[in-house]
Design a protein around this nucleic acid. Structure first.
Length: 507
RNA sequence: GCUCCGGUGGUGUAGUCCGGUUAAGCAUUUCGCCCUCUCAAGGCGACGAUCCCGGGUUCAAAUCCCGGCCGGAGCACCA
């Protein structure tokens, strides 16, 4: 007894040490025997909410040396599309999540049918031909309908369910639950319905499709899932989940719920995003303002930051909207060490230096780490940002970073700051002097940085959710590959979107 | 309306099951200092929570019990 307990304890310690993941231990989990699953419906593009679920599922499987299954819950041919299967797979791959098994619920459609039949045959379910409204009303009132009572009727209709005699939506298979149960999920929920539609994987041969309520528990059970995690809006269906497995005599996984992940001002539902895309307000599903994986990626976030962030949220039932700043902090710490520091000036203002000649200087790409250097040709003409120029007065001394100090002599035209004339000061860098970034006129390329903010302010679309900053960047920037992450000094971290555009990630 | 689930500093969480040994740990945010040719990162520090409220049990409650308030979810032939 003691000897058996000991290795378990040491294994637990190992887990605690090896994993930075602060996830709590899983109830009843044994090393090597944990199976988790991520069951998205391929009916849309994956978003941060999917990421949370998938990361937790995978993390636990990994933590216990178990298996992680990606199962497309494609039981409604009206919703599923091939491109979504792929988008989800790609999204997970980007997140660095590699499933041990990939499957579709629709792969098991025959088996699901068998279990459905079995349930009716054993009196655990029946075929209901009432119309939707009647079903709804009776459920609301907690009353049974005629269909539920006669097994012979059910058997007769069962045949018709399969031989195609019923029209689309003409009949459903219902669980024989408890019509007066407090938990409305138990009031004879629909388990199968007839849908005429082309399924992307199955075609139109199959018309009888299980609902989530039926497919999820059966699939989890036969897939060997030990710990089934889902978001907390399913909590009331737990009883149903277990009741179905009970009646079918199938093994029961452990169910664990956690809260959904959402951000303030960032709509996550298709319902809210689609109209924005249709109206052209948001260009595509990869718009950096969206919480889609494509959008988040485009904005410049790293999968690793997302993982750390998700794990920092923990498994809680409390509904909260964590601030995006936390995600940004994780991201910033990761990318800081390898982002080149480059110059970009927003709203450029010309700067003429009087007493200097042209030369080529060498700039370091990172202050602390060796990321190489670059050569920049400079003459006596520069651009600095209007924001910096606005703060300057005659006789002020500032430093052009990595170059030299200057003293402002006059504004051109007089008293406006449209252009500045300054003199270089033969003095070395000193502490306390303001330092600003610059772009040499001879090396400047027109450049734009897209800044995104939350799409919604309260319930209203935020018209300022997208700002384009125009200015000049040093020409070096144009040689960077798309997807490169950089820091524009004193501006913020950005991701190169194309040769003369970047997207602001965060400061 | 009915049922279920939540409620810890500005924010996200740990601790709550097995009540005391931390009257509350971590992260983030904000501010200050150090470092620094960035408004980044790093280092140090500070501010900040009567643990939703009111009762009760107990020598002792964030932790147990009761009531209330607030928030969310479910009540689909969607998942």
């Amino acid at each position: 007894m003691l000897e058996q307990a000991a290795p378990g304890e040491s294994q637990k310690k190992k887990i605690a040490e090896s994993s930075q993941a602060p996830l709590p231990p899983l109830q009843g989990a044994e090393i090597g025997n944990v199976v988790t699953r991520f069951p998205p419906e391929p009916s849309g593009y994956p978003h941060i909410g999917h990421a949370k679920a998938a990361i937790i599922d995978e993390e636990y499987a990994h933590m216990y040396n178990g298996k992680f299954i990606l199962r497309f819950d494609d039981t409604n041919p009206l919703n599923e599309k091939l491109e979504y299967y792929e988008a989800i797979s790609e999204g997970l791959e980007w997140l660095g999540i590699r499933p041990d098994i990939v499957k579709n619920s629709s792969d098991d459609i025959q088996l699901l049918h068998e279990y459905g039949k079995k349930l009716i045959l054993s009196g655990g379910a029946y075929v209901c031909t009432c119309n939707q409204k009647t079903i709804h009303d009776l459920r609301a009132r907690g009353l049974p309908c005629e269909c539920r009572n006669d097994l012979n009727v059910a058997l007769d209709r069962l045949k018709k369910m399969f031989d195609g005699s019923f029209e689309h939506n003409a009949a459903v298979i219902r669980f024989k639950g408890d019509m007066s149960n407090q938990n409305t999920a138990m009031r004879d929920p629909t388990l199968f319905r007839i849908i005429d539609g082309e399924h992307p994987k199955i075609g139109n041969k199959i018309r009888l499709w299980p609902t989530y309520d039926f497919a999820a528990p059966v699939e989890d059970s036969i897939d060997g899932v030990t710990h089934a995690m889902r978001t907390k809006e399913y909590e009331l269906r737990n009883a149903l989940y277990f009741a179905i497995l009970d009646r079918l005599g199938l093994r029961k996984p452990l169910l664990i719920e956690f809260s959904r992940l959402e951000f303030n001002g960032v709509p996550i539902s298709k319902r809210k995003i689609k109209p924005l895309i249709e109206k052209g307000i948001v260009k595509s599903w990869s718009d950096p303002r969206l919480p889609t994986l494509m959008g988040i990626k485009r904005k410049g976030f790293l999968p690793d930051a997302i993982r750390k962030f998700v794990l920092s949220l923990g498994l809680t039932l409390a509904e909260t909207k964590p601030p995006v700043e936390t995600l940004e902090a994780f991201n910033r710490k990761i990318i800081d060490s390898y982002c080149m520091r480059l110059f970009f000036v927003k709203d450029p203002v010309e700067l003429q230096i009087q007493n200097v000649s042209s030369k080529e200087i060498i700039l370091k790409n990172h202050p602390n780490n060796d990321l190489g250097t670059r050569k920049v040709p400079v003459s006596d003409s520069f651009y600095i940002s209007a924001e910096d120029a606005a703060k300057l007065n005659i006789n002020d001394e500032i430093r052009l970073m990595d170059l030299y100090n200057i003293k402002i002599i006059k504004f051109e035209p007089n008293q406006t700051r449209k252009a500045l004339i300054a003199a270089a000061i033969p003095e070395n860098i000193r502490q306390g002097i303001p330092k600003i970034q610059w772009v040499a006129k001879s090396d400047a390329i027109p450049y734009k940085v897209m800044i995104t903010r939350e799409l919604y302010l309260g319930e209203k679309y935020n018209p300022n959710s997208l700002e384009i900053c125009e200015g000049y960047a040093e020409s070096f920037v144009s040689m960077l590959n798309i997807d490169t992450r950089i820091q524009f000094v004193r501006f913020g971290f950005c991701r190169i979107d194309d040769s003369n555009n970047a997207i602001f990630t965060h400061r």
